[in-house]
């Protein structure tokens, strides 16, 4: 699939500077169709800069193509096929839910009014309510319902669940996976709460200090990385295999390896595939 269909997002040497501070330093990555890519990094790593560049919200240096277009200066055209939720509570407080639906229906050719109304009905949100009267979780769900009613090829989510309680966060991601995702769409999502998205991602991009430190699919993780819990007496021998990270546990150490010899590792203990959050900590420490 990826050989014939050009990637939805392709960045080559993407850079962004704010004064003398470098937010993105010659970054390369791509997002293919039908994938859910997590752009993961600590605060200030350059996640938001990358998303802003992709969405045409900011200028940048380097080559960037989103849905075949250069995003900056073409934002309006781009938003016919892509859409985003930038943060919580970005719907204006004065807007009524039914006004939001009417407005989107009026200006967005890809907006599916029936779908939006069905989702809002499911969430039991009355149309006459103003956004400012809703709870934080409700606001986000309304925003998600409106966004999911747009037939977009690319959906970008920037810390979409920041400040929400666990129930609202779970509701958000359940709706996203069950009601929205299909093979024709792609989602690019940034978060620093790795645990909450790792089960839905197909690809991960780790970013730190403006550079990509890891770019691989979840299937590749099992082939590329291994974590082994090694008891104290085998630690010295295991260290000879070049672990890139160690984590102490009671009575043993967990060692992380990249491109290891899996058979040799098996002699030190049970070989596991590290979780995305473990890998995140290991890669960024």
């Amino acid at each position: 699939m990826s050989e014939t269909v050009p990637p939805l997002v392709q960045a080559r040497g993407l850079s962004k500077k704010y004064g003398s501070r470098i937010a993105l330093d010659h970054v390369n990555f791509s997002v293919e169709a039908g994938r859910i890519v997590g752009l993961i990094g600590p605060n200030g790593a350059g996640k938001t800069s990358a998303l802003r560049a992709i969405l045409g919200l900011t200028c940048y240096e380097g080559d960037l193509s989103v849905l075949g277009r250069e995003p900056f200066g073409n934002r309006a055209a781009l938003m016919l096929e892509a859409t985003f939720i930038a943060d919580i509570a970005v719907l204006p407080g004065w807007l009524r839910v039914d006004q939001a639906v009417d407005f989107l229906d009026g200006v967005h050719p890809q907006f599916r009014r029936e779908r939006a109304l069905a989702m809002l009905a499911k969430m039991q949100i009355a149309g006459r309510r103003r956004i400012r009267e809703l709870s934080k979780g409700m606001k986000t769900l309304v925003h998600l319902a409106l966004t999911m009613a747009i037939d977009a090829k690319l959906l970008v989510l920037d810390e979409p669940t920041l400040g929400l309680d666990i129930l609202a966060r779970r509701g958000f991601y359940d709706a996203l996976v069950n009601d929205y995702m299909d093979a024709t769409r792609s989602i690019l999502i940034t978060t620093h709460q790795v645990e909450e998205v790792e089960n839905l991602l197909t690809d991960i991009l780790f970013i730190d200090k403006g550079r990509i430190v890891l770019d691989c699919s979840l299937e590749q993780i099992a082939a590329r990385y291994a974590a082994v819990a090694v008891s104290e007496e085998h630690v010295a021998a295991a260290r000879a295999e070049n672990p890139f990270y160690e984590r102490p546990m009671p009575g043993k150490k967990v060692l992380y390896f990249e491109h290891p010899d899996f058979q040799r590792l098996a002699s030190f203990g049970e070989v596991l595939t590290p979780s995305v959050s473990d890998l995140f900590v290991a890669k960024l420490s």
């Binding site: 919200l57 938003m79 985003f84 930038a86 943060d87 970005v90 407080g93 200006v107 050719p109 966004t147």
Partner: peptide, 19 residues
């Protein structure tokens, strides 16, 4: 809309800044 940050919502729609 910059103060209440809803500017990003309006910018997520296919409407140019000029319009």
């Amino acid at each position: 809309d910059r103060k209440d940050r809803s500017v990003l919502f309006w910018k997520s729609l296919p409407i140019s800044d000029t319009a």
